[in-house]
Computed example of a mutant assay.
Amino acid sequence: PAAPPSSAPASSPSSSSDTAIRSLLVPVPDAEPVAPAGAPGSVLPGRPEAARPRVRQAAAPADPEYGVPCPSCGAPNAPRRHFCRSCAIPLKDSADRTAEGPFAGQRPRLHRDRTRWIARAVGIAVVAGLIVGGIFGGPPAARAVQDHFAKRVPVHPTKYSASHSAPKQPAKLAFDGYSNTWWGTGYAGDSAGQWLQADFGQPTDLLNLLITPGTSGRSAQAAEQARPMEFDLVVNDSAGKEHIMKRRINDGGAQKIDVRVRDAVSARLIVRSAYGAGKDRQVAIAEMEYFGRSAQ
């Protein structure tokens, strides 16, 4: 009788399931057995080699530029550049900076107003020149210096007269101290040759004359009549000497005129020409004020 076939050992269900699970989780290919280190015929792992540098191709040369040369290296730069294409130095001038503080260790400069010192020096030089001129220039120069620094006071005439006056416009109205009253020549036109005189009770040193032309100190009212433009101022002193001064004033407003006559006894204003002269207008003067040297 035939022998019964030999039966292969049946694998356990648990071992087959573990192998299937391992093949799903960590698929590992069949590897050859690795010999232990130091065994005959074994090969040690080599050192990792460093990556070789990549050889780059030379860049295409840049197109030549033409423009302002760099102040540092001299390379030309196009106008659009703000920094040098060669050395990267700023191309703008450092003077464009609006403000810059002192450097380290540098004392800040004091900002002094030199104009004030110059004005003071000029003033001192003028005063010194006047004093020296008064000393070495004789009595006339000394009197000029005294007149320049003298204190001025009003001089009131004791008598008034005129070559002719309009009705209700006598000469005294030009010396009454009010600018809304006036003296009129009484003649139409420029009244050339007409005069207005002031007499002083005693000799006085005249320095200035303040004249208000027209009928008022206000410009609108002053233009109602003609106003003196050019005139002669004739001043007589106590010695009988006549001082003639030709003057020209502006049209409108009180104006100061230098006189500078010692020991004056009378002053006469002679009209030569006028502003706004016409057939129905006469030359008018609202006020005349004389100023002399103070006795103190």
Results as ranks from 00 to 15, higher is better:
Trp117Tyr: 14
Lys168Val: 04
Leu130Pro: 01
Gly101Met: 04
Gly134Phe: 00
Ala104Cys: 11
Gly105Leu: 03
Phe136Tyr: 12
Val127Ala: 14
Arg120Pro: 09
Ala162Cys: 04
Gly138Lys: 07
Ala99Val: 13
Leu110Trp: 06
Gly101Phe: 05
Pro108Asp: 06
Trp117Lys: 11
Gly105Met: 01
Val127Thr: 09
Val127Asp: 04
Ala171Tyr: 00
Lys92Trp: 12
Pro154Asn: 01
Ala144Arg: 14
Ala142His: 06
His156Ser: 15
Gly123Phe: 04
Val145Asn: 12
Asp147Pro: 03
Gly134His: 00
His156Val: 15
Asp93Thr: 14
Lys151Ser: 14
Arg143Cys: 00
Tyr160Cys: 03
Val126Gln: 06
Gly133Glu: 03
Arg114Tyr: 10
Gln169Leu: 15
Val132Lys: 05
Val132Arg: 07
Arg143Pro: 00
Arg120Ser: 14
Pro139Ile: 05
Ile135Pro: 02
Gly133Pro: 04
Ala171Leu: 03
Ala119Asp: 09
Val127Arg: 06
Leu173Tyr: 12
Gly101Pro: 03
Thr115Met: 11
His148Pro: 02
Lys151Cys: 11
Ile131Leu: 15
Gly138Asp: 03
Ala99Thr: 12
Ile131Asp: 05
Ala95Phe: 09
Arg143Ser: 07
Arg107Gly: 08
Pro157Leu: 02
Val145Ala: 14
Gln106Asp: 11
Phe136Gly: 08
Pro139Gly: 09
Pro140Tyr: 04
Val145Ile: 08
Val155Gln: 04
Arg116Lys: 13
Gly123Met: 08
Leu91Ala: 00
Ile135Leu: 14
Ser161Tyr: 01
Ala142Ser: 09
Glu100Ala: 14
Leu91Thr: 03
Gly105Trp: 02
His111Pro: 08
Ala162Arg: 02
Ala144Phe: 08
Arg109Ser: 13
Pro167Cys: 01
Leu130Tyr: 06
Ser86Lys: 13
Pro154Phe: 01
Ala95His: 11
Pro140Asp: 08
Phe175Gln: 00
Lys159His: 13
Arg120Thr: 12
Ser163Gly: 07
Arg112Asp: 05
His156Cys: 13
